[in-house]
């Protein structure tokens, strides 16, 4: 069996995966013949570059929904993702037209689990990016963020729509993006020290966080479920959490034990008096 190798570049790119997967399908390269990604030399025989495989057929039609699924799954860092998507494509192309309807299919379910994780990461990135203003320039902001999947390209348009009038950058370990008021520019990864170390408004934000919290309703489990610990180190408000939780029981105790107090100030006549 001839083996082939395909490298999606960059690994989260739908365009790149789509071209390779399409070529593989048209060349009738079955999923078990194809290694996705560099260095995964599984077989004993050297793998050929996939694009050297001669085309055998001319038609491939897949539902739009598969591309949506692939767009999300490709952002996941699971090393099997490219192969898993190709398996789904192969099965759909081979006649299982309704595969994407079958939520209980084991392979589809695996892809849906990855999709769900990426969608969650995407949502959390929209929520947890924290910009810091560059000192002295009113409209320039930089954020340092550590996303658990390769979603910078996917999320950048959201920030573009929202912060159109600002000039901002989001730096992450694997990739960065900058908006200059006109275009998005993608670049390589960065370091935490490339972003400003502080922003004066964070103190006000922490004040707000401390005071909107109701000590009578502590529910740290719920909080962590929605705001996982991995994000805490880049959230200015998260460093307050231990102290807030620690002080809560005593604050509530004081409120409950306190006898009703007569008003200390004179109350003007009320309506109808």
């Amino acid at each position: 069996m001839q083996r082939y190798q395909a490298i999606v570049d960059p690994p989260w790119s739908l365009k790149s995966w789509r071209e390779l997967a399409r070529h593989a399908w048209l060349a009738q390269v079955a999923p078990e013949q194809l290694d996705w990604g560099a260095g995964v030399q599984g077989g004993l025989l050297p793998a050929l570059d996939l694009l050297k495989a001669p085309l055998q057929r001319s038609k491939l039609r897949v539902p739009r929904e598969l591309l949506d699924l692939a767009g999300a799954v490709l952002c996941h860092r699971d090393p099997q993702r490219h192969a898993l998507l190709y398996q789904l494509l192969w099965r759909i192309g081979s006649g299982e037209r309704a595969l994407l309807e079958r939520a209980t299919d084991a392979q589809l379910r695996q892809a849906r689990v990855l999709q769900k994780a990426v969608n969650r990461d995407t949502h959390k990135m929209k929520a947890f990016v924290r910009f810091r203003q560059i000192a002295g320039s009113e409209h320039r902001y930089v954020a340092w963020f550590e996303p658990p999947s390769d979603i910078v390209d996917r999320v950048a348009p959201f920030f573009q729509r929202r912060f159109a009038a600002m000039h901002w950058s989001i730096l992450t370990p694997y990739r960065s993006v900058r908006w200059d008021g006109d275009q998005l520019h993608f670049g390589s990864g960065a370091q935490r020290s490339d972003a400003p170390a502080e922003d004066a408004t964070e103190a006000a934000w922490q004040t707000y966080y401390r005071h909107i919290f109701n000590p009578a309703r502590t529910n740290p489990k719920m909080m962590q479920q929605e705001m996982p610990r991995q994000y805490w180190k880049n959230l200015p408000e998260a460093r307050l959490i231990p102290d807030l939780l620690h002080a809560s029981p005593e604050r509530v105790e004081t409120m409950i034990k306190r006898e009703p107090q007569p008003p200390k100030r004179r109350i003007p006549n009320r309506r109808g008096d």
């Binding site: 929520a127 929202r162 912060f163 502590t218 489990k221 408000e237």
Partner: peptide, 24 residues
């Protein structure tokens, strides 16, 4: 989406930007 010279957007579902220790 943000208007020319402005900021701000709204989508179908809201975004929870943080959670306080009361889980809200």
């Amino acid at each position: 989406r943000a208007k020319a010279g402005g900021i701000g957007s709204t989508g179908g579902t809201g975004i929870c930007h943080s959670y306080t220790p009361d889980g809200r």
